[in-house]
Design a protein around this nucleic acid. Structure first.
Lengths: 151, 151
DNA sequence: CCTTGACTTGGAGTGCACTCCGGGCTGTTG
DNA sequence: CAACAGCCCGGAGTGCACTCCAAGTCAAGG
């Protein structure tokens, strides 16, 4: 290890590892204008800066919260505008925030149902082959119709 | 309203509305084997039962938590097996649960960063054109390289 | 009887976010 | 010098989850 292990510049592979995305994806982001043209070193090879790492970190936050690339592109454009774009950035992020909160709420609801199902299944495993439970399904079945009038 | 507003059977459109998915998607799920063949009424038209509604509710819980269709198919098969499939269902759901929890954690992390960014932007809007902040960018820029050695 | 509208079918098409490909270049190693 | 690793590029391909389409069927209404 060198005396300074925070290398000044990262190769595509290093960058990919550091950011948790493939080098291909980094190129794709650059093509799409999510990153400005990345600096180049010997033989026209990309060299990523610490700022690039930080910015890709932001991009990943937006992606992981399911922001579409199209909207990330718009965000990147607003960042390029500098201070002039701040108001719109707030607007964009707050709109996104609302969606993320909704998504999380839906996720939590679903998770609760899943937990409930696990619990029910567990119980049915704990004591199933007794006289009064044997042969009964423990799920709503996938479309089984109860006793009801003909369609 | 009739004395019993829980209609016995639902048409595709009613079912779609009730479940929050398109009728096309319901057909797609049926094709994929996520639903058993749905009952038919006059003119071979589908008639969905209350059990179908419940089961599609389960499917939506799995989808909303990003379970791939392939795995939902497997879950449906395990449900078809009846009690014989319960142990595997528990296993499948618990594995999925772990992933959902991880996803939620990642989501919360990202959300925190987004909240932070909103906050920073807000501050820069509150008092920007003062002598000591004017002209400065409030973001890491999208790839701006600081003062550092050449690549 | 004719139209309307909700449905049926298999198959094709869409949009998204990557992901891979083939051909070429360059700097390093044996 | 030859082989190799790592990267360059534009463009094509992939997988997923729907979504749409054209042609046909059926029951009710005017």
């Amino acid at each position: 290890m060198s005396f300074d292990d925070t290398n000044e510049w990262l190769t595509p592979m290093e960058m990919a590892e550091r950011c948790g995305v493939s080098a291909e994806t980094l190129r794709y982001y650059e093509r799409e204008g999510l990153l400005d043209r990345v600096a180049r070193g010997e033989g026209n090879h990309r060299r990523y800066s610490a700022d690039d790492v930080a910015w890709v970190g932001v991009l990943r936050c937006l992606r992981v919260t399911a922001m579409p690339i199209r909207e990330m592109k718009r965000f990147a454009e607003l960042v390029r505008l500098g201070d002039a774009g701040v108001a719109d950035r707030v607007e964009l992020l707050e709109a996104h925030r609302v969606e993320v909160l909704a998504k999380r709420a839906a996720l939590d609801d679903a998770l609760q149902m899943i937990d409930h199902k696990i619990d029910v299944y567990r119980r049915s495993l704990a004591g199933p082959p007794t006289a009064d439970t044997a042969g009964r399904s423990t799920t709503p079945t996938l479309g089984g119709r109860g006793v009801r009038s003909r369609p």
